[in-house]
Amino acid sequence: MSPANKIVRQLLQSILLLGCLVPVGYAADGLNVLLVLSDSNALYQNFANTYRQSLPVGVQLHSLQRAEDFNGQHADLVVTVGVKAAERVAMNTTQPMLAVMIPSHSYAGLLAQRPGNKLTSAIFLDQPWHRQVSFLRAVLPERRKIGVLYSTDTRLEIAALRSELSDHGFTLIGSALGSDDDLFTRLESVLTASDVLLAVPDSAIYSSNNIRNILLSSYRRSIPLVGFSQSYVRAGALCAIFSTPEQLAAQASRATVSFSQTRKLPDAQYPVFYEIAVNHEVARTLGLSIKPAESLRLQLEKSPENMR
């Protein structure tokens, strides 16, 4: 086991341990948590299972399997999983709320729905740009022109990405796709000027319908695609950095424990735990020598950006 992996495991174990050590009668005792899932499918169940298992014994946990089931039920803390549940809860209660598994850019909108309510926080789904850029630097240090295709109405912070990239000697080759533009014409123009294509969570572009031709176009030009989930890597992306539902659940449980002790929520935060996946078949075909995922992780954890 690599040292990096060890650190993560130890962190997870300490969280579990912390839960067990909380004495009966302490603040956790009687904390009433309502977990609201966006949907009942396996993705949310995986989250719910890990979350339940990592909570201290004194916490009373109730779960709602679908966002629609929430009608203002009382709890000390409402933990929502996914965008749908977050929106539903934000609209229907002023109780303390921890929105987990939401894109960072949707958080401001969520806060706007709860004006003046200080007891709101979130654990984002997406990786912070600095981590994404460190990742690019670790994987493909030679490739400096990063192609990014996004839609004109995207809520992603492209300007922040651009400056983060240029701070580290990269250039963002961006193209904004308007509703009248042809996706593949735009894609070709981005690919022509780039040497990596960085996929961003913009559903107008990176949908399951478009991904096949996006991957084929970039592969045809021998330009690797860097994705943002495990399924991207399986589909044919070179690599991705992402957080699993289980990892987000572990982080959520940590925030819950903290809330039980202080009745305060930590600031909204990006994922602490993450995975790195590499498609070595694709790397070989493109003639790229990529370090194993574990070495990449180590490099990332050592990088100064990660200390911020």
């Binding site: 749908k84 939401i102 894109p103 850019h105 949707s106 909108g109 729905q113 399951s208 399924s231």
Partner: peptide, 25 residues
């Protein structure tokens, strides 16, 4: 930066956890 309310069409967790076809098999 984002004073607008959360809009439909924005990304959600499904963008991250959706199943994708294995294109480069």
């Amino acid at each position: 930066a984002c004073q607008t309310v959360y809009a439909a069409g924005s990304s959600s967790e499904m963008d991250y956890y959706q199943e994708l076809p294995v294109v480069l098999s």
